[in-house]
Design a protein around this nucleic acid. Structure first.
Length: 457
RNA sequence: GCCCCGGUAGUGUAGUGGCCUAUCAUACGAGCCUGUCGAGCUCGUGACACGGGUUCAAAUCCCGUCCGGGGCGCCA
């Protein structure tokens, strides 16, 4: 109820409230009579209460201008010395980025905001120290290192907030898509006993008297859920990789958007993926005009059919570009860059050689598999596959990859009592954000990135 | 794990052996200014990552340490 109270007639409202003792406490401790800066344009002539940070002040003769910022925007507040000498002297000394409540009247003005708040009262809720470790509005951008060390300040910049508002749109639009299409949201354990796929390094953790690991992927569990009959599941959760990579597109902890679907093949889940990418791009275009504008980015066009390029065709294209590569080799970063530079779009690379894909990927024939990657240019966004559902094939594949089936017994068991054919994939949320916003470093799409050297903040 | 590169005021930079008691911008402090809007003007404070070495002389060259950036491999 408090949230619905509007912003006009503050005095009367407070008066009504204070008549009730129980509510008096709430009024005192919760910000009730609050106006967001973005709504001020519609409140010309009204008294308002804004809460935010003083990002700048200018003293011009006998008047002082404050630039005040909250989550919704920035505005200007003004005070004439003659109207309140004591307050004027106080505001003259206030440090940038101090948190305040400002009461006053909204009037039209020649400011770039079109309006300003004529200050009647300022309450300093918390003073900031000075100088700042990192300027919020300074024209020179600090190094990424400095910004990440002081991320709470860095994120006060509207342009950084915009990235995460957009990321919120992306993950929510995807979640909505799944829910609307009958998926069940699941939560699988992040402390696990063994590796999912061999290859990747895992972070060890001490699990009481035993050694355990942080999960690199929900792969095995989401497949088990197919055996459990959940039909269509998704999970949005962290994944941990202990690889010592040091690049602009890798993190040691990232957010994985996973799905698994029963009774479909690789093409079936590729169609879902194509939908998901389009839905998220469309949502950003519709809901984040202001943020895209602030970032100087055009919404990404996804209004085309995503190409299916087989791995073998890709090898052929790479050869055409002069790369020395043969069918069966992995696609190295230089090759993906070489071929991908002509493909500034989403496209699938399908039918990967079985040797290059994990044990749980369904064979297509003797040599190739039903595994696929979704790429944007050179960057891998997703990898997915139709999975093996036959337990004998699964055990044979495990052995071929040099893994011990016994250590996967809890997983194999789910295949021995009626596992449906199924397929799935995983998207990196940060990578998707990176592509949709054309960011040059995945750390820009992560609030508090965990990389080879960063464990705090 | 392999390879390359870098660390100069709070922030971002200039400076490749002597011209450095180290440049510029911004921030910070003091002052002036009745409408600014990247406000302006005057004055001021503030830095060569750490340790060792070479040299008559080191921010600059060498070695080590610490911290960081990037590429590759691997992957989302």
């Amino acid at each position: 109820m408090l949230l619905h109270l509007n912003t006009t007639c503050i005095d009367e409202r407070i008066h009504e409230f204070l008549a009730d003792d129980r509510i008096k406490i709430i009024v005192k401790h919760i910000v009730t009579m609050r106006n967001y800066i973005s709504e001020l344009l519609g409140l010309i002539g009204k008294d308002v209460n804004i809460y935010g940070w003083i990002q700048n002040s200018r003293i011009v003769g006998s008047l002082i201008f404050l630039e005040v910022r909250d989550v919704s925007g920035v505005t200007q507040a003004v005070l004439f010395r003659k109207s309140n000498q004591e307050l004027f002297d106080k505001l003259k000394k206030i440090n940038r980025e101090s948190v305040v409540r400002i009461s006053g009247k909204v009037v039209e003005s020649q400011s770039k905001y079109g309006i300003e708040v004529q200050i009647s009262e300022v309450e300093i809720l918390n003073e900031s120290m000075a100088p700042l470790p990192l300027g919020i509005i300074d024209p020179v951008e600090a190094d990424l290192e400095t910004r990440l060390e002081n991320r709470f300040l860095d994120l006060r910049k509207p342009s950084k907030l915009a990235i995460f508002k957009i990321q919120s749109t992306i993950s929510n639009s995807i979640r909505n898509y799944f829910i609307e299409n009958g998926f069940i949201e699941i939560h699988t354990p992040k402390i696990v006993a063994a590796a999912t796929e061999g290859g990747t390094e895992l972070f060890p953790v001490q699990y009481f008297e035993r050694k355990a690991f942080l999960s690199q992927s929900p792969q095995l569990y989401k497949e088990i859920m197919m055996s459990a009959g959940f039909d269509k599941v998704f999970e949005i959760a962290p994944a941990f990789r202990a690889e010592e990579h040091n690049t602009t597109r890798h993190l040691n902890e990232f957010t994985s958007i996973d799905i698994e679907v029963s009774f479909v093949d690789d093409e079936g889940v590729m169609r879902i993926l194509e939908d998901v990418i389009k839905v998220s791009a469309d949502s950003v275009r519709d809901k984040n005009k202001k943020e895209l504008d602030l970032l100087g980015k055009e919404p990404l066009n996804t209004n085309y059919n995503f190409k299916r390029i087989t791995y073998s065709e890709y090898i052929h294209m790479a050869k055409g570009k002069g790369f020395d590569i043969k069918d069966g080799d992995d696609l190295s970063t230089p090759i993906l860059k070489g071929v991908g530079s002509d493909l500034r779009e989403f496209y699938f690379i399908t039918r990967w050689p079985r040797d290059l894909k994990p044990f749980y990927v369904q064979p297509y024939d003797e040599k190739y598999s039903r595994g696929f990657d979704l790429q944007y240019g050179e960057l891998e966004i997703t990898s997915g596959a139709q999975r093996v559902h036959n337990p004998e094939v699964l055990i044979e594949n495990l052995k071929k990859k040099g893994l011990n089936p016994e250590s996967f017994s809890f997983y194999i068991k789910a295949f021995q009592y009626g596992m449906p054919p199924h397929a799935g994939w995983a998207i990196g949320l940060e990578r998707l954000t990176m592509v949709l916003l054309d960011l040059n470093n995945i750390r820009e799409a992560t609030l508090f990135p965990r990389d080879r050297t960063r464990l705090t903040p």
